[in-house]
């Protein structure tokens, strides 16, 4: 009887651990291969080498793509963060019955499949001359990034201690001062988190990039996709590993921001 329970319990745990291992497998399987001395994508490694990374940084195609991706991601953030933050602050003040519908509409780009956004934007931008331009890509990326900012900032605005704001007001602080000195510092972690989300969303995005950019505006994920389909060699894995490292870095940054804000609140 007791043994049955134990077997059940440990069986469950083992299965759970296997599932978590499955989740990590693709990430840990390919990073070492990018350091392979040989060009075969299999284990055991034929010695360690950085030559594939050297190949990435000496190839204009990849460097051009990195530059494009950075330009697009930074511009996307520059649009999405202010728009999303303002809207989150606004939503907090609004009290009317349609509010949750409004919220649902504003974050709907997050749920609508990217291919639909890509096609809709393509049909719309093509006659305006915005297809095949970085500007068009930035606008489309801002669409998918802005809900992430909105949701994140909205969460920290709703946790904001309204008593503090009333206190500032009753002590005679003008609304702008209250906003600058109280509200902004308190929701800053939310804004930073949202910005990280938005940056990552744009930096990793490939479907819209595939639709509305020409050969002159290839981003890193787009080059990675062609590499995967046409010439899957360790150089491609080096690029994939760099992207994994960036994602992990952004995740750590996000965790650090959230922990700091949790500490401050406590």
């Amino acid at each position: 009887m007791l043994d049955g329970t134990r077997i059940w319990l440990w069986g469950c745990r083992l299965a759970g651990a296997l599932v978590l291992g499955f989740l990590l497998l693709p990430i840990f399987a390919i990073v070492p291969l990018s350091f392979n001395g040989g060009s075969i994508l299999a284990y055991p490694l034929q010695g360690l080498s950085l030559k594939w990374y050297a190949a990435v940084v000496s190839t204009p195609r990849w460097l051009h793509a990195v530059a494009n991706s950075l330009i697009v991601a930074i511009s996307t953030v520059a649009i999405a963060t202010p728009l999303g933050t303002l809207a989150a602050l606004g939503l907090d003040r609004i009290r009317f019955p349609g509010k949750s519908l409004l919220m649902a509409l504003l974050i709907s780009p997050m749920i609508v499949p990217v291919i639909i956004t890509a096609v809709g934007v393509y049909f719309f931008f093509a006659p305006l001359g915005l297809a095949n331009s970085l500007a068009g890509l930035v606008l489309a990326h801002a669409v998918i990034a802005v809900p992430l900012v909105l949701v994140t900032v909205n969460a920290s605005v709703s946790q904001l201690d309204k008593g503090l704001l009333r206190a500032a007001e009753s002590l005679g602080a003008p609304p702008m001062t209250t906003f600058r000195r109280i509200t902004i510092p308190l929701i800053l972690p939310g804004i930073v988190s949202g910005t990280i989300f938005a940056f990552a969303a744009s930096f990793d995005e490939v479907v819209i990039a595939l639709m509305i950019t020409g050969p002159g505006q290839k981003t890193l994920p787009r080059e990675l996709l062609s590499g995967t389909r046409e010439n899957l060699d360790p150089t491609v894995l080096a690029v994939a590993s760099i992207l994994i490292a960036i994602s992990a870095g952004l995740l750590l940054l996000l965790t650090a921001v959230q922990q700091r804000s949790a500490k401050q609140n406590a």
């Binding site: 994508l41 062609s226 389909r229 046409e230 010439n231 899957l232």
Partner: peptide, 12 residues
């Protein structure tokens, strides 16, 4: 669907 894919498929 694109020119270098067959080389990739053959090579792998």
């Amino acid at each position: 669907s694109s020119g270098n894919q067959p080389m990739q498929l053959l090579g792998s």
